[in-house]
Write a protein that binds this DNA or RNA. Structure first.
Lengths: 176, 176
DNA sequence: TTTTCCATGTAACTCGTTACATGATTTC
DNA sequence: GAAATCATGTAACGAGTTACATGGAAAA
């Protein structure tokens, strides 16, 4: 449902065609939204069938496929608000696939585990920097960026503690 | 892949049948792992086909279906380590469906948005408390619990800021 | 001249979930 | 006597992704 919410929310701001919509999502929202192109086209079709948006063909010069311009309808606006309320109201639990590795971390010698997690750590830092750079960027909603920054900082903190405890294990193993 | 990692990781510790495996996951790991029963059965079948685990039927008194006891094989052990290394090494980005609502929060009057988010906030607190209570619990891996606690606290902090900024908007709207 | 951009769409597939089905045994 | 427990399995569905297909126009 959050993908529909996204599409409706964007169409509420401007009429757009699918390609445009997808470009915007990829360029400006890829850090927080996952909607692949075929999915977007598919959902637009569904939303149009349901009467939440209208589809208007705009002929293009050259043999190009005509653009299909989508606009939100009053019913779509109502639906958008419904989805929005539902989304704001409910907390959806996150699961971290990366936790499975942590759960079985003892299966590896501490120094190897540390090396591997160090790689993960570097990727997380990179991600944090990339997100911090979006900050000025128009289009990307400020609160969401801040959310991701908060989140990533917490993740980094936690991983640092894990790494520290691994380092300690290594030490005490070295003594023995 | 992280589901396979989980199953192999558990079978590495004890031989088990599917029902037992599923019970353990639901009871002790539901806070961090999502594997539904049919999925578990399905994956066990696949892992057995691939030779990573062996299947042994144990007849049961009464008309009950025989238990299928699974044990990890040496190849399975190697595969487990492969998956484990891969899992530890790579950071997988998280997306929050709840961010979509935040992105369009201005579509609602601040007081309504605040009320809705207040509900979300309550659910998050509940979740945090539930996880803090697992802490003593055997079976659930300590680091993963701590991860979730860290995560949830960061989420709560961030939401508190959002709520505060909404409260401010309400105030300045009240003045006008 | 080759690559990239525009703009759509479809088909096949993966992964996972829900819902349904079975059947004896123990517990309330 | 009804309900929960044990223990499996299958079928249908849903959501989303990847990969494939088209075809001219503009840019390199």
């Amino acid at each position: 449902m959050h993908r529909r919410l996204l599409l409706l929310g964007l169409l509420r701001q401007h009429k757009m065609h699918g390609y445009q919509l997808n470009e915007f999502i990829e360029r400006d929202l890829s850090f927080c939204a996952e909607v692949k192109r075929p999915t977007a086209y598919y959902l637009l079709e569904k939303l149009a069938e349901a009467g939440y948006i209208t589809e208007e063909e705009e002929e293009r010069r050259g043999g190009r496929p005509p653009r299909r311009i989508y606009r939100i309808t009053p019913r779509g606006e109502a639906y958008f608000l419904e989805l929005l309320r539902e989304n704001l109201r409910t907390y959806r639990r996150v699961t971290f696939p990366g936790d499975m590795g942590i759960a079985f971390i003892d299966a590896l010698p501490p120094h190897e585990a540390r090396e591997l997690l160090e790689e993960r750590y570097a990727q997380m830092r990179e991600m944090l920097e990339r997100i911090q750079q979006i900050s000025g960027h128009a289009g990307a909603p400020r609160l969401v960026i801040e959310h991701h920054i908060t989140h990533l900082k917490a993740e980094l903190n936690w991983l640092e503690e894990v790494l520290a405890s691994l380092a300690q294990e290594e030490e005490s193993a070295g003594e023995a």
